[in-house]
Design a protein around this nucleic acid. Structure first.
Length: 634
RNA sequence: GCCGCUGUGGCUUAGUUGGUAGAGCGACAGAUUUGUAAUCUGUUGGUCGUGGGUUCAAGUCCCACCAGCGGCUCCA
């Protein structure tokens, strides 16, 4: 968040004169000079303040004073004029009394820091005429934006935030390995033999072992496959999705949408931006460090949502809910924004703008919570199977919850057929008492969470979500947060990284067939067979198969190469032989085989591999000669 | 955000101690009409991430900024 703007000008003399009141209650004329004039060289600092309540005030004061003092030092100046100038503000200016008190604080801080300075402050809240005569040397003009470290929180609440954060930092947790047979072992005493990725995952989570230095490998792949690319014209961490990537993204999302709908969720769409002033949101924001994008509308500030919780909780809070309607499920495919620190961004693993499926459930009690958690856990697991990535699992909960529900937890993880990382907390520092995550381990040996489900015991009260029980009493329900797949972008990252690992072991990397941008590419041996090629393409398309035709005037070898470079799962070659016999030559990527078979067999194969999965159109030209090159190699 | 590394045509890249950029792929034109991972010839295209500075002269040195990556921190 912006706290204040400084414009520093080294001037030959300076003068001002008050002409009129600019606000109802300007600063008292007893306190400051109504006019002033000097011929001596001086540094004029124009200041606007843009927030009413400055978090961590001493830090901000130190920052701005350091700026001013270093500017004075750079130009060898000891005369200083502080000049309130609201017109510098880029966002909503602070209220007058808040701004004035900040200015005064800067003045006193500067005086205390250096006795030699000759400081004059111009009066606040007046229209003034002034004369400025900029010296024009390299250091004569500079401007500085002072940014806050923490959220848009009021000063008396800063303490509360700090407390929450400190609790999080000092919360004691212990790590264990829980096996499907119910055996519990300390994470550092466990035998990881045959569990290479699990070991890497545990290391990453516990020791934070991050000694690798190679860049993430999925980045090159996502470009070469023309799925996603960087966008220089945007803020870092905001990517451009290309047509082939759109298909993948769309299908990933459609699949989650379908799952959620079948699970019985109501699907909604809620706003992207929310007011800082809303009571419930204020309380929620206090828990978290400021990582928001701020959007100005008129003279009000809004933050872009960093999760879909707000919209759905506010919707639930306005609904009249009876115990008969529980569990109440609301789902949304939501674009969210988190202004992560620059150094934290990494390809599609960590972005600033991403798309998350978010499912919230209101439930009456812990029994119902466990039942829904169980179902969502299974759905998420199914999803991980469908995108064909290997996952490592973590459960995190309070020690109390584990002690009471140990058998139930063990029954859940039987599904996974492998051990999990178990993190136990002495005290609940966050809003949840239980959560699990499915993680992928990438080629850099880093882990990233995809699916997660959490049981939330705090937010129904915070957002005033209530249901009426059988006796007519209003009750705050428990809530679950569930992301079945994790963010779409991260799913793409997970699939690509998984396939790179596969290729490192000697197999060809490939997308799950239902997710391949083009499922079939047909290569006519020469242009004489284009008509035949078109017939085949049409038949495939009638079966909802995405087909493209490489009609370019290239050697067959080169067309094969081009198709392989795009990880095309099925390549069909047609020429004289195929035309005569009415069959096609098919090259299957998954097992590196070459078959001569009837087209129906190809269709049947694809259908057998993609049943129960969503389908989508090819959203780029059918003819390769009509496809522009965005970032692919051939 | 802090620290470090990197940044040459759409892509991959060469460029010695500073002397006004070489190539392959692609694209385009022509030839070729091709049977399972790169057909041949030619043409086009860069002022070297951006902005300053030092110098007779900078891709090559200095400063600032931007972007990517790595580390720290963080991951609601």
């Amino acid at each position: 968040m912006i706290i204040m703007q400084l414009l520093l000008v080294h001037s030959h003399g300076f003068d001002w004169k008050v002409t009129d009141k600019a606000i109802k209650k300007p600063e008292s004329s007893q306190d400051v000079k109504m006019s002033y004039s000097t011929l001596e060289s001086t540094l004029v600092v124009f200041i606007s303040v843009e927030t009413n309540d400055i978090p961590d005030i001493s830090n901000v004061l130190a920052k701005s004073c350091t700026e001013i003092i270093s500017a004075l030092k750079d130009i060898g100046e000891s005369n200083l004029i502080l000049y309130p100038w609201v017109h510098l503000a880029k966002t909503q200016p602070a209220k007058p009394d808040a701004a004035l008190s900040t200015l005064k604080k800067i003045e006193t801080t500067l005086r205390s820091k250096s006795a030699e300075l000759n400081i004059v402050r111009a009066p606040f809240g007046y229209y003034k005429s002034f004369n400025l005569n900029c010296k024009g040397h390299a250091l004569a003009e500079r401007s500085k934006e002072i940014l806050g470290q923490s959220g848009k929180v009021s000063s008396e609440k800063t303490a509360e935030v700090t407390k929450a954060l400190t609790a999080e930092q000092t919360a004691r947790s212990t790590f264990h390995i829980l096996s499907v047979d119910g055996k519990l072992a300390p994470f550092d005493k466990f035998n990881y033999k045959g569990q290479k990725e699990f070991e890497l995952f545990v290391k990453y989570e516990t020791a934070k072992d991050r000694t690798v230095s190679t860049p993430p490998l999925h980045v090159n792949v996502m470009k070469n496959l023309e799925l996603v690319d960087y966008e220089d014209g945007s803020d870092p961490g905001n990517f451009r999705i290309l047509p082939r990537g759109y298909i993948v993204k769309r299908l990933i999302e459609d699949h989650v949408n379908n799952m959620a709908a079948q699970y019985g969720a109501m699907i909604v769409e809620t706003p992207l931006m929310y007011s800082y002033d809303h009571e419930s949101l204020k309380k929620y924001l206090e828990r978290f460090p400021a990582r928001q994008y701020v959007v100005q509308s008129g003279n009000k500030n809004y933050f872009l949502r960093f999760a879909a919780c707000f919209g759905q909780f506010l919707t639930m809070s306005d609904a009249i809910i009876s115990y008969r309607q529980l569990p109440l499920k609301i789902f949304e495919m939501a674009k969210s924004f988190r202004r992560e620190q620059r150094g934290e961004l990494a390809g599609l693993r960590r972005l600033r703008a991403f798309t998350m499926p978010d499912l919230h459930t209101a439930i009456s009690d812990i029994t119902m919570a466990k039942k829904e958690f169980d179902e969502q856990f299974r759905l998420a697991y199914q999803y991980m199977q469908d995108i064909e990535v290997n996952i490592e699992t973590a459960f995190r909960m309070t020690t109390e919850f584990f002690d009471e529900n140990k058998e139930w937890v063990i029954s859940l993880i039987k599904l996974l057929k492998k051990p999990i990382l178990l993190e136990l907390f002495e005290i609940r520092y966050a809003y949840f008492i239980l959560k699990f995550e499915f993680n992928v381990v990438d080629t850099q040996k880093k882990a990233a969470a995809l699916s997660t489900v959490q049981i939330d015991v705090e937010n129904s009260e915070r957002f005033d979500i209530k249901y009426t029980d059988s006796s007519g009493k209003e009750i705050y329900p428990l809530l679950t947060h569930c992301s079945l797949s994790g963010s779409t972008e991260r799913v793409i990252y997970g699939i690509i990284e998984e396939q790179i690992k596969r290729s490192q072991k000697g197999s060809k990397p490939q997308f799950p067939l239902w997710l391949s941008p083009a499922q079939v590419r047909i290569l006519p041996v020469s242009e004489d067979y284009l008509d035949f090629t078109n017939t085949i393409a049409e038949e495939l398309e009638q079966n909802d198969i995405r087909v493209e035709i490489d009609d370019r005037d290239l050697s067959l070898g080169k067309k094969i190469r081009a198709a392989e470079k795009l990880w095309t799962p099925i390549i069909i070659v047609v020429g004289e032989k195929e035309l005569k016999e009415g069959k096609v030559s098919v090259r299957y990527r998954f097992n590196n085989s070459q078959e001569f078979q009837a087209l129906e067999e190809v269709v049947e194969f694809i259908q057998s591999q993609t049943q129960d999965k969503p389908t989508y159109f090819r959203v780029f030209p059918k003819l390769v000669s009509h496809q522009p090159i965005f970032s692919r190699v051939v």
